[in-house]
Design a protein around this nucleic acid. Sequence first.
RNA 1: GGUCCAUUCGUCUAGUGGUUAGGACGUCAGGUUUUCAUCCUGUUAACAGGGGUUCGAUUCCCCUAUGGACUACCA
Length: 502
Amino acid sequence: MAQVRVRFAPSPTGPLHIGGVRTALYNYLFAKKNNGIFILRIEDTDQGRFVEGAEEYIMESLEWCGIKVDEGINEGGKFGPYRQSDRKELYRQYADDLIHKGDAYYAFDTPAQLDAMRAEEEKAGKTFIYNASNRMGLCNSLSSSGSDWKERIEKGEPYVIRYKMPLGEDIHFDDVIRGHIVVNSNTLDDKVLFKSDGMPTYHLANIVDDHLMEITHVIRGEEWLPSLPLHFLLYRSFGWQAPLFAHLPLLLKPDGKGKLSKRDGDKMGFPVFPLFWPYGETSKGYREEGYYPDAFVNMLALLGWNPGTEQEIFTMYELINSFTIERVHKSGSRFDPEKAKWFNHQYLQKRSVNEVAIEYREFLRARGFHIDIKPLERLVELVKERVSFVKDIWSETDFFFVAPQSYDPEVVKKRWKEDSPALLRELRSLLEQTDDFSPSSTEVLVKSWIEEKGYNMGAVMNAFRLAVVGASRGPHMFDIISWIGKQETLDRIDKGIALIGK
RNA sequence: GGUCCAUUCGUCUAGUGGUUAGGACGUCAGGUUUUCAUCCUGUUAACAGGGGUUCGAUUCCCCUAUGGACUACCA
């Protein structure tokens, strides 16, 4: 069998949506599983929609995800160029070929005329369609008498080239995921293949490029399923062997109806893009939100596919090994932001204390704290299992760096009693006597004192926590005071007694 | 409106012509803990509806409903 070659073919019209990333991922997994080639082709045949920076964004996103491109605009390859605008000259001859074969024709109807006809049909509750049912009444080379149309072209009148959809034919085709599908050609229209601006449309460019690049499997979004009959017909008209097609299910909104959109992310506070998109409206990215790329990829891979086992955590290598296109689902998947977080939690737990400490050091540096790696490792060890993201370490450990500025009123009400100041004063003088602030040492010291005096453990420790932390949260007290040190501990007790009062 | 696609716990899903319909996220409840989390244990909850086929359908077929995509000189 010929070598497997697949392509991811986005349009550079803005940042890549996570649905697009998943399409790229499935293409990549399929390629690598089959020792094949993964191609990145930029489909920029609509010059009006080109967005500066989008190409770079796409490539950076794939790179961040660990999806390596074998052939593409940066990587090169034998089948280049890999940007359709750079292949512009190539398409016209294929459109002409179709005209010679009688499967395509020139059409002169202006956009304004077509719009008017569409509007009229819509008013009558119908859908305008341009095909065998009415093409002889429209303005094109099939309906014009004699050589009128030739003159029009020679005069430089704008025209498009349309595919001549057959009349009343049942078109049979197959999709790897969805099986056999039949559509009657009467419901399809004479799609424009070549635009008046000299550029091909998606349909032509796509088929020509997939053929020329020897693509064996077309794995793309479900939104393309309705144009699959056209594409099959195109392959037939050219006399080319069609690749295998697989149409992926959509990513749906977490709640409500419809497919996942940028608005959902904004509304519910999760990113719909892999990376921050710096142009236009601000849009968060998974990378900037603190997701690990392997967690992100793992989460995405399982949205619409699973290997049939109960395994949920996969390295890219494992994904490649277990991926099969047949196990991709038919129906759309709702995106679940909670589960996305859970994946990151799993990945963060798998990392070593040292790795996380290094990441956290970077985080602190950006906020003006320059801390050695050793104390940070001790800190990370204390809170690692409680967090899902490195940035969460800060909200769990802010009080390690800064004494409380205020004391949670709820906790004060619940934990600060009449005798709290007296207990803390006693505790303070007890701690002042020792210089050994290791957790085990202070623990023994304090606990035996509490026992000796017959105090209530909770009464002492909760008040102590309130003074040191300012709230009812955080790791064990002896770990905290060991980290902040003796002087800071004593200071915070003083401050707490003074500020909380009574 | 037309064409096409889809439908198992709230969500992601496993699965089979005969199963106690399994797992994960979430929820809830216990346990651990000096607090808050984490963690552990348990709990919760599903085959869209109606017809067939069959000894038997969640599983196969049809219809309905619902959801979705498409319906541009956009991809």
